[in-house]
Nucleic acid binder design. Sequence first.
DNA 1: CGCGTTAGATTGTTCAACAACGCCGAACAA
DNA 2: TTGTTCGGCGTTGTTGAACAATCTAACGCG
Lengths: 232, 232
Amino acid sequence: MVVREGFQIDRTSTADQAAAALRERILGGELPPGTALQEVSVAEALGISRNTLREAIRSLVHEGLVKHTPHRGASVMSLGRQDVSDIFLVRKLLEPTAVRKALDLPAEDVRELRELVEAVNRAVDDEDWPLAVELDMRFHRRLVSQHGSERIDGLFRTVTAELRLALILIDRQVSAAATARQMARHGVVVDLLEKGRVEQCAEEILDHLEQGESRVMDAIASSPSLDFASGS
Amino acid sequence: MVVREGFQIDRTSTADQAAAALRERILGGELPPGTALQEVSVAEALGISRNTLREAIRSLVHEGLVKHTPHRGASVMSLGRQDVSDIFLVRKLLEPTAVRKALDLPAEDVRELRELVEAVNRAVDDEDWPLAVELDMRFHRRLVSQHGSERIDGLFRTVTAELRLALILIDRQVSAAATARQMARHGVVVDLLEKGRVEQCAEEILDHLEQGESRVMDAIASSPSLDFASGS
DNA sequence: CGCGTTAGATTGTTCAACAACGCCGAACAA
DNA sequence: TTGTTCGGCGTTGTTGAACAATCTAACGCG
């Protein structure tokens, strides 16, 4: 708690560290959706005080990763159809418009995107799914950053984080082939972008998203988790 | 604290109540941008514990109304050019696209919008500026809600709240005539919307926003507040 | 005048206690 | 059996005090 790790000093509050730790555990698949977060036990497990944990949890609630019911405690958010639909609504608005703003994209940005695509492909080849998902989302984040707005980036970041909540449940339900085919389309997007065929690129992304949405929806439908879990 | 007001029971945590109280004071103009929020004094003023206040403040930080610097405390956020630009970037993305989605708008929604426009006009006639701003933003919120996404509504809500942070500084700097002319355009928007001239309506809104942005920018330029106050 | 040092104030975090509330089972009545 | 009421028990909500870590500003010194 008071220890300095290595050489670099700490500069982040323990509450934020705790939030980060929980976020990692949630997005990593330990603490699956629906898991209750009991204050005393979690605080003890993280080695922090109950009050500090409370602050951390409040952050995660704002990020949409944790659901809080008064006097009933906090639990890892579990998404229903409605949430997934909402999330993809956001993506279908943000990503195509981002591409449209990416006309005359600097060469450096194109290179960066291409590197991400290759990284994703490598991860898919290695069948390292968690990494593939992580890189995939980083790619999309990079696209959305073309809007040039912190706030939009923020929304997109939380939205992708929430989506991962759904993805961890279905990671292995989904066939490898379908995933690979899906990921391969990123290359097409960058190609179109480089050639300035913006409108066509937007179409491509939209279709990409539609497919992604229906795949997640299907997976949720065949999942044991409740649909109405996310609250009325 | 433990008292039940009237008959209806409380159902909201004191931290949330405190956050709401602070939000109101901030948006209302007491606690102008830059005001330091000392934990002990504020907690005492609100009649709550320091720990509870901390939770409230963390909420406001997430909403963008309060800025927090480690070991230096929290203060009411003060927006710079960059923030205003960012906020209008978001609005210029969200509002025109919302209108485009509002094709074949139900009659009831149109009526609701029209009522809001009239309410705004009434407030302008009465020169009740705080109310006018409030209603103006409610009108825009209603537009954005056409996206049909909770999360987009959430982003827009925080963004408009932040904008009010800038507006309270310039409320009275701005000429009444210009404000009135600006607000009057809402009627045009609804008219176009009702006639289904969606594209033209989007243009109208975009122009409306451009004008609003430059007006806020001008006001900030001639304001004593620092531009770089929002942090690097 | 510049600069390190120290003292005071403020924030970060913990701990222990109590109040308020939800959950669950036992006792009881219909 | 079914339904209701009543406590007990565990958890959350909130408080107050305490200490550690850090920032700020005034002071004194060269």
